[in-house]
């Protein structure tokens, strides 16, 4: 083989090897130690007051509740936006260009800025306004404080671009002939979208939703000031309550636990739960995406 070719192969192969080896080594270590630390008790119990023993059940629940609320609030908006962009907006319309630019910029906003926004807008503006209107006599703020609701809404805004971009792509991949067949049978645009386009793009849309859920479940910075709680060893029953969260729990355990060594098993267990959660979601998204692409190609 030529020496230049050999050099290229060696250099780039080495880079790939380093990347893969680093990934495997690091995550291998985490998974091994995490699996040793994880126990059934951890999944079903509440943590002790110093967080070092007990379980992470409230954090699992909080993460799930927060992500669920986020999905309910964000996905319909994202899908509707994507439908508008893909089906209605004229290719070069100013409005569509502006929406696309907004989506792109939104995707690039640092997550901590979403935290500031969530605090400034949802908690202090919306929440305080509600309190001012309806809870004038309450001794302490009812809506105007960090809460599950505000964290979820902040994350819904953060994950909006993921849903919009993947859904629009999925809708655009629906073959034109299918739409035309529907129109030729006298269906209206709305019927065509509802009965032909969206069902056909189902796998692609679901990919976007799953990706958004995975992203939302792992983000910590946006919820720091909008609702997450350090220690709240019960299941939150009200969206106006604070909540525990797996990602934040990892942060607290790893950096602020009074006795880091005693908390080591807890933090590894929590990391593993979080890692498995996002891996499963992302792997599902990859499989769905592969299916969506195959589906439209044949």
């Amino acid at each position: 083989m030529n020496i230049g070719d050999r050099g290229l192969r060696l250099l780039s192969g080495l880079a790939l090897f380093v990347v893969l080896a680093a990934i495997l080594a690091i995550f291998g270590l985490v998974v091994v130690e995490g699996a040793g630390a994880l126990s059934w008790r951890m999944l079903v119990e509440a943590p002790s007051s110093d967080l070092a023993t007990g379980g992470v059940m409230p954090a699992i629940y909080g993460t799930a509740a927060c992500t669920l609320l986020m999905t309910v609030a964000g996905v319909p908006v994202g899908v509707a936006t994507a439908v508008y962009l893909a089906e209605y907006a004229p290719r070069r319309s100013r409005f569509a260009t502006a929406v696309r630019a907004a989506v792109r910029i939104l995707a690039g906003v640092p997550s901590i800025v979403f935290g500031l926004f969530g605090l400034g807008f949802f908690v202090l503006f919306v929440g305080k306004s509600i309190d001012g209107l309806f809870y004038r006599d309450a001794a302490s703020p009812v809506f105007g404080r960090p809460a599950l609701l505000w964290s979820s809404l902040t994350l819904a805004v953060l994950t909006l671009p993921v849903v919009i971009v993947t859904t629009e792509e999925a809708i655009r991949r629906v073959p034109r002939e299918l739409r035309e067949a529907s129109y030729a049978l006298g269906a209206t645009q709305l019927t065509t979208i509802g009965r032909v386009v969206l069902p056909h793009a189902r796998a692609g849309i679901l990919t976007g939703v799953v990706l958004a859920v995975s992203r939302g479940a792992g983000e910590v910075a946006p919820i720091l000031f909008t609702g997450v709680a350090n220690y709240l060893p019960r299941i939150p029953t009200d969206v106006r309550d604070g909540f525990m969260h797996l990602g934040y729990h990892v942060y607290v355990l790893a950096t602020q636990a009074p006795d880091v060594d005693r908390a080591r098993a807890m933090v590894f267990g929590t990391v593993l739960v979080l890692l498995v959660l996002t891996f499963v979601l992302d792997a599902a998204a990859l499989l769905l995406r592969a299916r969506a692409h195959r589906g439209t190609r044949s």
Binding site: V220, V250, L274, D282
Partner: peptide, 17 residues
């Protein structure tokens, strides 16, 4: 896809690592 999966790892986990 393996490398893409790493893109989805929460940053708090990377911080912990």
């Amino acid at each position: 896809p393996i490398i893409e999966l790493v893109a989805g790892v929460p940053s708090v986990v990377l911080g912990f690592i």
